[in-house]
Design a protein around this nucleic acid. Structure first.
Length: 429
DNA sequence: TTTTGAGTTGTTCGA
DNA sequence: GTCGAACAACTCAAA
């Protein structure tokens, strides 16, 4: 797990432990190889059956199959359930029986399926095990950063756990969803659901999200929001059917793409020091809060892959380490989409212009001013391209280009031409 | 089997 | 300033 996700997991387990205790249960923590720890624990506790929610990531499928086979052979009742996805990955098929590689027909087919099961409430009383069973302490797992403690921004921004997830869902529906279609693309507004980490950790299920939305008045935003939930579903199904997706480009010709190695440019990108305000704002939001607005994820990812010509794998790794909502399937599928090597990817000539993206989606500059405060006194007209601002404007705003804020590490037009050339090179073999 | 229409998110250029 | 076309060609999904 990445660092930010480990921080979240600590809070998540803490909340789960409290929730179980309130219902007469107890959370027991153990760690080690599943096919050893689980059978040992079953023997120790005298359990006769075990249930779990399925994971759909390739390594987890393999692991759980081994565990289940072993338990059944030992006469233990073992049952797994789907708590993570609206549809089973083998359920949604094209008419020819293959899995979907294009989102729109995938989504259409999903919406025509019988409605996903409705969630049932948690039991009131768990009637827990009465004996004493040893448990690791959560602290001993060392999930939270200590030296240094870099998680202050995460604590400010998030409350992990099921209760917080349900609050978030309710608030989103009461305050945000009616303007979802307009506001979800405006990073300066809190226009998105921010449910991603809760979904990633199973603190809320897509079934809960789905049925809660379906029960609402058919507000304008609901359909658009459900479409986004289907994107999560699509990525998970893709990973299930294409297990190599996190490492290998789905379009094979990309194996020979001429990526550059450029550690200093990569470092500038990671730390929000590229000289393009919208990119830097996004990367700093990520570093500070463990989350980045969806629109800005696209812009920053496109910048790494196309302007800097650095492999999407580098970006994938950084996001994996820094996102509280890090999810193997979403991360891999979306990086491949941006890089153009996914099955349903953006065409290669679609290269985001970070200045235009900033001007279009952060027109009032609220987002950049929040995350790049050294530019906050600069007028809207120059905010997304400070290197073009007249000297007097910069001086009035207290900015010295190259000192208080970096000059662009690449020129947009030059970088764009270079990217197009690289793609052409790849195509010609 | 063949054909046809369509495909998350954009930018640039020239009229 | 606004608008439409070009940017390529390919693969997928369904008729």
């Amino acid at each position: 797990m990445g660092g930010a996700a480990r921080w979240w997991l600590h809070g998540s387990l803490e909340a789960l432990s409290k929730g179980l205790a309130a219902r007469g249960g107890k959370l027991i923590l153990r760690r080690g190889a599943s096919d050893k720890v689980i059978p040992d624990f079953i023997q120790e506790s005298g359990a006769r059956s075990i249930s779990w929610n399925r994971c759909y990531e390739p390594a987890a499928v393999t692991r759980d199959t081994v565990v289940k086979t072993g338990l059944k052979a030992g006469g233990i009742e073992a049952e797994s359930f789907n708590g993570a996805l609206l549809f089973e990955p083998w359920e949604l098929r094209t008419q020819s029986g293959s899995f979907f590689k294009v989102f729109t027909p995938f989504c259409r087919t999903g919406l025509k399926m019988p409605s996903p099961r409705t969630p049932i409430p948690a039991p009131g009383n768990l009637n827990g095990h009465k004996g004493s069973l040893a448990s690791d302490t959560l602290e001993s797992w060392g999930l939270r950063p200590t030296k240094p403690d870099w998680a202050g921004g995460l604590r400010e921004a998030w409350t992990p756990g099921e209760e917080a997830a349900l609050t978030r869902l309710t608030t989103f529906h009461e305050e945000t969803i009616s303007e979802y279609v307009e506001d979800r693309d405006t990073p300066g507004e809190a226009g998105t659901s921010r449910l991603s980490p809760y979904l990633a950790f199973g603190e809320i299920s897509p079934h809960q999200v789905w049925h809660y939305a379906a029960r609402q008045e058919p507000a304008r935003g609901v359909t658009g929001f459900m479409r986004q939930i289907m994107w999560r579903e699509f990525c998970a199904h893709l990973l299930y059917h294409a297990p190599k997706m996190p490492r290998t480009p789905l379009r094979e010709e990309f194996a020979s793409f001429p990526w550059r190695r450029d550690p200093s440019a990569l470092a500038a990108w990671k730390h929000g020091q590229t000289g393009y305000p919208i990119v830097d704002a996004g990367m700093r939001e990520l570093w500070h809060t463990g989350w980045m607005h969806n629109r800005v994820r696209m812009v920053t990812a496109s910048f790494l892959v196309k302007h800097l010509l650095i492999s999407w794998r580098s970006g994938e790794k950084w996001f994996w380490d820094t996102l509280v909502d890090a999810d193997l399937a979403n991360n891999a599928a979306n990086w491949q989409w941006v890089a153009g090597c996914g099955t349903d990817a953006a065409p290669y000539f679609r290269i985001f212009n970070p200045v235009l993206q900033g001007e279009k989606f952060d027109a009032g500059g609220a987002y950049v001013r929040r995350w790049v405060p050294e530019l906050k006194n600069l007028a809207d007209a120059w905010l997304h391209k400070p290197w073009e601002a007249p000297h007097a404007e910069l001086q009035a705003a207290g900015i010295v280009m190259g000192e208080t804020y970096p000059l662009p590490i690449v020129d947009h037009k030059t970088a764009r031409t270079r990217a197009l050339f690289a793609f052409a090179q790849m195509r010609s073999g």
